[in-house]
């Protein structure tokens, strides 16, 4: 398994995840939605197949992320950092 030690990289991965969710899912699920483990896996299969990006992002969520991450565009809540289960609220489309 790859290892993740740098928290700046972890922050970028989590923010990339938020950006991906905010750009990919609101058309289908509205401005506020919960993303389960299966949808999370499907997202990375779609945007970055055959890469370790999902593993690294899972590690970033498990080992580094705070429960709530807010940017001017979205708010990401980590409901379960192991599975993971996430809740995203998009502020601006």
């Amino acid at each position: 398994m790859p290892r993740l030690r740098n928290k700046r990289v972890a922050l970028r991965l989590v923010r990339l995840l938020g950006d991906l969710l905010a750009s990919e899912l609101p058309q289908v699920k509205g401005r506020e939605f919960v993303v389960g483990a299966a949808e999370y896996r499907a997202l990375y299969r779609r945007v970055s197949p055959n890469s370790r990006l999902r593993d690294l992002t899972s590690m970033a969520i498990q080992s580094f992320s705070q429960p709530v991450i807010e940017t001017p565009r979205w708010v990401l809540e980590v409901l379960d950092n192991k599975k993971p289960v996430l809740k995203l609220r998009v502020k601006t489309p």
Binding site: K7, R8, A10, L11, V14, A60, S63, F64, S65, Q66, P67, V68, I69, E70, V75
Partner: peptide, 14 residues
């Protein structure tokens, strides 16, 4: 409760 009021978004587990 931890919220986004804290600027820190990531912590180092070690």
């Amino acid at each position: 409760h931890k919220t986004s009021m804290n600027p820190r978004q990531v912590v180092e587990r070690e």
